[in-house]
Design a binder for these strands. Structure first.
Lengths: 213, 213
DNA sequence: ATTATTATTTATCGATTGATCAACAAAGAG
DNA sequence: CTCTTTGTTGATCAATCGATAAATAATAAT
């Protein structure tokens, strides 16, 4: 008898449920996934989606917000700049926590779907990542090695490229797992630790000269 | 007057033209791109596509062949194993040539579209890459450092993971450029040279012990 | 208990999409 | 020049998709 009664939910709750399921749904099928199929997964009818979101694009925009904005942790910026902790430990902690968020089925696939569709979303996100993480990170490295601040001597292409390399190594783990469907045979954290170590031992070669006066 | 006469081409030629344009078209729009739009780019009518390919999926399958099978160069395997050339030079030459092929708009995007759609294509391709390149590469490194052959001592997860890291760094350049639409500020070859150097200087730490009796 | 509000469903529209079939036209065979 | 072959097009089908409007039913208000 109690198979399933019709649900009549509070609008805020319903909207949240739809948004959450949309994240999972579009991550799986891409943004060309059909609203009817999404509705079926939600056990509601398709027109009801349009009661809560004016269009499919609006729903997709909400998915972006939910994942790429909503999952950013401001505490990460503090981790990087907390000079009471050794630099390597800071990097490891940051990348471990960051990896925990982006190395998920939803994050990786949605980011790639968004890129292929191309609105400026990815470039915009990565610009933010550069400002909030990459640049702070290089500044800390400069300080560690007794080099001038990035305020006095702008970040070089090579420095940023080294950071990109580290970022790529981690991100690609997610690509292998969630896009290529290849099981990872290794512990992610240990890879991160190793990559951070190699990164730090290699970066001094591209740092600007010590004396610049 | 000579605006455009109706073309009546030889079937083999027409099929080739369609296949080539399909590569470009699906790389841009993904596999959900419409056959009518593809036909318009070819300046033919949409039903003509079905004279040469029984279905859209068959055309897509042809695109896979064209790009992922057709662009592989057997000479790459020779480059890696040519012991008359120093190891680092071999790696640099291989990765420069390989990058020249895969770091293109069509290759990168089609590979990603295929991954997200997921047939086993990507895993299959990467399995081939592992066998034809990665494993040979590790074997050469083992030899260079006086370690046992991979026939005697199987490749370790860490060794492969190091190669993945190098691969990721290069592949990600293409992702940034062709999926995120971010202009690369650096010369690709110089990045490859640097990555290969870092790779080689780091790999000995994960190589198996010298004495294994 | 009756009414008002609104969350949800049913029915449907208009546009799009992969695919099919008969008609047309360009080239070669005789 | 006529006939045959076949590359190409025009017309159209059936299914699918985002979106809209009216009908229904659950909850709150009086």
């Amino acid at each position: 008898m109690p198979i399933r009664e019709q649900q009549r939910l509070d609008p805020v709750e319903r909207e949240g449920i739809i948004a959450r399921e949309a994240v999972s749904f579009f991550a799986e099928h891409g943004f060309e996934g059909q609203t009817r199929e999404l509705a079926k997964r939600l056990q509601i009818t398709q027109p009801l989606l349009y009661r809560y979101f004016p269009s499919k694009d609006a729903l997709i925009e909400r998915v972006y917000q939910e994942v790429f904005v909503g999952r950013w942790r401001p505490s990460w910026e503090k981790i990087i700049t907390d000079r009471s902790v050794p630099l390597e430990a800071r990097l490891i902690q940051f990348y471990r926590e960051y990896a925990e968020v982006i190395l998920t089925y939803e994050w990786i696939r949605l980011f790639m779907f968004a890129g292929l569709k191309n609105l400026g979303l990815n470039a915009r996100y990565l610009k933010m990542l550069r400002e909030r993480a990459f640049e702070k990170l290089v500044e800390e490295i400069r300080l560690e090695y007794g080099r001038p601040s990035i305020r006095d001597l702008p970040i070089t292409v090579l420095e940023i490229e080294m950071v990109w390399g580290l970022h790529a190594a981690i991100f690609y783990l997610g690509v292998r797992k969630f896009i290529y469907s290849m099981p990872l045979e290794t512990d992610v954290n240990s890879i991160i630790d190793a990559k951070v170590a190699t990164f730090l031992s290699g970066i001094h070669t591209v740092l600007p000269a010590k004396e610049t006066v």
